[in-house]
Nucleic acid binder design. Structure first.
Length: 485
RNA sequence: GGCCUUAUCGUCUAACGGUUAGGACGGAAGCUUCUCAAGCUUCAAAUCCGGGUUCGAUUCCCGGUAAGGUCACCA
């Protein structure tokens, strides 16, 4: 890269506003962003809205929101023009027209003389003969004046094998079949992606183009256009595809490709998302897997981008998200959890009680959505309300019996009642009954206590629960359990 | 069908042509334990196949195979 030391690095993320942003697109955005930031360069968000038909209302806002969520701030975008003007292609039509006219004048572009049906017939014929369709085989002998109502096509002047370099894939090449007279201006006057992106990249000073491998096949076309326009080639970085893991997908309740913002909805952290996205298709070359955004910017290298495609492994994302959650400062995390609990059903919980619950919750909550789920399926309702259960549940296996169980619970009640309010904590609770439990059988003694307090067969440690719900509540619940027996 | 790209544990991946092919997630087992969860320890798990070059190939070359892409007035 030494030859670029004197040149400002500029990258862009150039989505079309045709819907939501999914994992793969955002990964492309992330890599472009990281490379720009690492080099103190410029990151441009360009909206490629040259297809009126496919455009989805609100998509531009949605794209921006997705990027903002992940913290990928852009230097120029739909909301901020650059020195080159607008970042929205539909507002740059005159520029494309100007370049198109130049090509026409040089005899390097011509109006497509055929109707859609005629072109379709050519294509069908090629299909039937199992040949790739090449428009240039039907190129007219003489070019009529282009009146702007027909598609304008680039005339590929030199049919040859193109070879080029890609920072990720190395030396690439493609045969003559990949080269064709493609449409650069559509009959509606809008440029095609193939045309507009090259002019914009040039005018915006884009140095590195990161994109998916679906563009490898069309690169010869791009190169022929760079040549026709006498524009130097940028640096290409082809990113590996992210494939869907169908097996995992079936197990998920959700369907299809996910909007990246769905992950926000599920309670994933943007920093975890970024971390994970970076790690699919790239690695630092060291065992480090946990990264902050700043660390990613510092560590990111184009040469470490993977060639092969990867499956999106949501299980590992969960793990990573959990790791990121664990690093959130305690007071901030408390606020977040409090917000979730309050917004769930208006439950008001004291900071003190929640503070005690935090370690228990933190172990179980891999994403914030898990907490909502725990609340809604009643998994942790005993923290907020008295549990309901049948007395049979209080008995540890079959051998204990109601009488013994009653005796154990009474012993525990007495022991707990002796603990002063000031000393009421999990450790004290445990110590007060531990020896007795060891003597009588821990299962037989401790199971009923936990069940009395939670009404659950699975729950956190009884002493922790007791310490959280408090002495009064603990005593009440034990008394109630004893009364059943 | 043509053209292009890719190929290491189930998954993400590491390995100047020389490693017992390493790590992480997930899985299993054990410890701990009243049940979960967490934690700790241990284990299983891979170089797509076939040739070649080489003293030696996961690595380089060729051929298969498989997967993905592309052959739009979509990007």
């Amino acid at each position: 890269m030494s030859e670029n030391n004197d040149k400002k690095i500029v990258t862009r993320f150039a989505p079309s506003p045709t819907g939501f942003m999914h994992i793969g697109t955002m990964r492309t955005a992330l890599f472009a962003y990281l490379w720009a930031r690492k080099n103190n360069g410029t990151f441009i968000l360009r909206i490629e809205d040259t297809d009126k038909e496919r455009e989805v209302a609100g998509a531009i806002e949605h794209i921006q929101e997705s990027l903002k969520w992940l913290g990928l701030e852009w230097d120029f975008g739909p909301d901020k023009n650059g020195p080159f003007g607008s970042c929205i292609q539909s507002q740059r039509l005159s520029i494309y027209k100007e370049y198109a006219d130049k090509l026409v004048q040089k005899g390097l572009a011509y109006g497509d003389p055929y109707t859609k049906e005629e072109t379709e017939a050519f294509r069908a014929q090629a299909d039937a003969e199992k040949r790739p369709f090449l428009f240039r085989n039907h190129r007219p002998e003489k070019f009529e004046n282009w009146d702007g109502t027909r598609p304008l096509r680039l005339k590929v002047s030199e049919i040859k094998r193109y070879k080029w370099h890609d920072v990720v894939r190395g030396d690439l090449e493609a045969g003559e079949e990949a080269l064709d007279d493609f449409v650069i201006i559509k009959s509606d006057g809008f440029p095609t992606y193939n045309f507009a992106h090259i002019i914009d990249d040039h005018l915006m000073g884009v140095t590195h183009i990161m994109r998916g491998d679906e563009f490898i096949s069309s690169t010869p076309k791009f190169l022929s256009l760079y040549d026709a326009l006498e524009i130097p080639y940028p640096i290409f970085a082809t990113l590996p595809p992210i494939l869907r893991d169908d097996k995992t997908k079936k197990l998920s309740k959700r369907d299809g490709a996910k909007d990246i913002l769905d992950y926000r909805e599920d309670g994933f952290l943007p920093q975890a998302m970024i971390n994970f996205l970076a790690l699919t298709g790239w690695n630092p070359g060291t065992p480090q897997e946990f990264f902050t955004k700043e660390e990613l910017i510092k560590t990111f290298e184009l040469t470490k981008i993977q060639k092969a495609g990867a499956l999106f492994n949501e299980t590992k994302l969960l793990w990573l998200n959990h790791e990121h959650i664990k690093l959130i400062p305690k007071d901030k995390l408390l606020e977040i959890f409090k917000g979730i609990i309050t917004s769930y059903n208006g439950t008001v919980i004291s900071d003190e009680a929640l503070g005690k619950m935090m370690p228990v919750l933190l172990e179980r909550v891999q994403k914030f959505g898990d907490l909502k789920e725990m609340l809604s399926n009643g998994e942790i309702e005993y923290f907020f309300a008295k549990p309901t259960y049948k007395k049979e549940g209080l008995v540890w296996k079959d051998e204990s019996g109601f009488e013994n169980t009653k005796q154990y619970l009474t012993k525990a009640l007495n022991a707990f009642e002796k603990i002063a309010l000031n000393d009421w904590n999990a450790e004290a609770l445990k110590n007060s009954i531990w020896d007795y439990a060891t003597e009588k059988g821990r299962g037989a003694v401790l199971w009923p206590i936990r069940y009395a307090l939670t009404g659950k067969e699975k729950s956190p440690d009884s002493f922790i629960v007791g310490s959280i719900i408090g002495k009064i509540e603990t005593v009440e619940r034990l008394k109630y359990a004893i009364s059943l027996l």
